[in-house]
Design a protein around this nucleic acid. Structure first.
Lengths: 139, 139
DNA sequence: ATTCATGGTTACTTTTAGGTAACTACTATT
DNA sequence: AATAGTAGTTACCTAAAAGTAACCATGAAT
């Protein structure tokens, strides 16, 4: 997989890396855009949880115990404004809010799932890298 | 693709998200490890360039014109210490240094290539997201 | 004598991501 | 009367990532 189209926008598939003045590296590169959307510390795990179906705020909090309220809501709000997550508020008391993936969200979850699958299948390679970084995966 | 094994280490494939005390979100999740390695702003494009073969420092600089020397060398050094990139210095003057992917680096490039492929095939979905973010991909 | 290209290094600043803790409002339960 | 659970908000702080600009040594070409 080596075609120049991979990292760059489809508009100039033959200009780079061949061109003498390659296009500027910016947010037009699809792979960069994708990573900008999914690469946050909590984003993949939240997408993963929601890929299992609709979840209440507190359910997500319990499934991801290390996340703070602030980060959970911050990521959810960003995903919502990205059109990836839909939020439904039930006007009851105590409050009840549900989050679920939109159709677009389900598409965005695809590459996350691919990444997960590759990562599990190639855990040894990842462990090699982590070991070189001094991340001891004891326990 | 919904098995709990995807985001978490293979050791506890059935404990989460079923368990009442799910494992702590940390660097043991393979997908997280993978993203920690490939998700930097410049890392994917550098891996992509090197996937095309051995490159001199200046070649990389010209292929990625927006990157600063500092960032290029910083990422290359990190990839080198991760065992993903190999560096060969020729003791000539002017200096000549070559960078290439190691076998491990070629493996790590696989998911990057997958991401790239998905991103190009689903550019419309990505554009939808970027538009909602106000990133106008004019030109 | 000066400039260019090579492959860097260094110090400093800005920007972004992420984390902590306290606070809100409402109701039910003890 | 105090506490817990719900879904948040707010102000503040730290750490990491990224960017800027100047500097270095060398030798060849001008």
């Amino acid at each position: 997989m080596q075609s120049p189209g991979c990292l760059m926008a489809g508009r100039r598939p033959s200009l780079w890396p061949v061109s003498k003045t390659p296009p500027i590296y910016d947010q037009r590169y699809p792979a960069r855009q994708l990573l900008d959307v999914i690469a946050g510390k909590w984003t993949p795990i939240i997408l993963y949880c929601l890929s299992g179906g609709t979840r209440r705020f507190s359910e997500l909090q319990h499934q991801i115990p290390d996340i703070s309220k602030k980060m959970l809501i911050q990521v959810l709000r960003r995903l919502e404004s990205d059109g990836i997550v839909a939020r439904t508020v039930y006007p009851v008391v105590p409050p009840k809010t549900e989050y679920r993936l939109t159709p677009l969200g389900r598409r965005i979850h695809e590459p996350v799932a691919m990444l997960c699958q590759w990562a599990v299948e190639n855990e040894k390679d990842l462990k090699t890298v982590m070991r070189k970084r001094g991340v001891t995966a004891q326990d």
